[in-house]
Design a protein around this nucleic acid. Structure first.
Length: 271
DNA sequence: ATGGTAGTAAAACTA
């Protein structure tokens, strides 16, 4: 039996309605099996479900008004769909809103569990939001411990809001005090990795600094000047990482008209 | 240098 390819992608879309055409065009061109979206910025009743269906995709989503929001777009129907950390812990966590469900959606697709997260950004080092971010990552590890095994295939993807290593930011010295590259944030993410994850992009690009998935809108000419961050990730357990054949960042999508401040990260597996 | 832009949704708030 010939190996089937599993192609997956993650994209912080910064409003799924504002960038609907860009996403649909990308789906037509790249035809991924799975696309995880973050920052859909739309409440469920207004999610543009029909255009995805017409494009031949299933879509499951959970959003809030104006902020956050996650979705999984897939060719095959997602099973066992669930939302949020679902641990009875603080969902409010310091003005976070009344629910964290708009930050995590998981499902089983083609027999593989998929977890899509929009990790809290943290706002500033001295804020409760940063403590909430660190706790959130600890609670996420607990979710992996409870529901999954490092010995079985598992896909974790999304906007992690953490750049893991100095080579993943354009100015590691200065950005140490940023919530996405603070040593505490990196340590919190590392604790999740230790449970049993492999960074699939880094696996295939071990010595390539300057590979970024996010460039701040507010820094002018950020893309051209290389002022980026690698904060979006595709991480898998060992058995799936062994089957990864390639991974890449679609920088061109950041050069589109009215782009998101992030871009698509893609990986392929021989399953 | 402590700004800058973009989105939502209707004035700030979030990133």
């Amino acid at each position: 039996m010939p190996d089937a390819v599993l192609k997956v992608a993650t994209y912080n879309v910064n409003s799924v309605r504002a960038r609907l055409e860009l996403v649909l065009e990308w789906l037509r061109r790249e035809a991924p099996d799975i696309l995880c979206l973050q920052e859909t910025k739309v409440q469920d009743k207004d999610f543009p479900e029909e255009p995805f269906r017409e494009a031949g995709y299933h879509v499951v989503f959970r959003g809030r008004k104006a902020h956050a929001g996650v979705a999984i777009v897939s060719q095959e129907k997602p099973l066992e769909v669930a939302f949020g950390l679902d641990d009875g812990g603080p969902s409010a966590g310091s003005g976070e809103g009344k629910s964290d469900e708009a930050r995590l959606v998981r499902a089983v697709i083609r027999g593989i569990p998929v977890v899509n997260t929009y990790v809290p950004q943290g706002r500033s080092l001295d804020s409760l939001h940063f403590r909430y971010k660190l706790e959130w990552l600890a609670r996420l590890r607990a979710l992996f411990e409870q529901h999954y095994s490092p010995q079985e295939p598992l896909l974790w993807m999304g906007d992690f809001n953490v750049a893991p290593e100095p080579m993943d930011v354009h100015n590691p010295k200065r950005l140490k005090k940023h919530v996405d590259f603070h040593p505490e944030a990196r340590a919190a993410l590392e604790r999740v990795r230790e449970w049993g994850f492999v960074d699939v992009f880094r696996l295939h690009h071990p010595d390539e600094p300057g590979q970024y998935t996010f460039w701040d809108y507010r820094a002018r000419e950020a893309l051209e000047r290389g002022l980026g961050w690698r904060v979006d990730h595709i991480w898998t357990t060992e058995p799936l990482a062994r089957k990864a054949t390639r991974a890449w960042i679609d920088v061109e999508a950041r050069r589109a008209e009215r782009p998101s401040d992030h871009t698509f990260l893609v990986a392929e597996f021989a399953t």
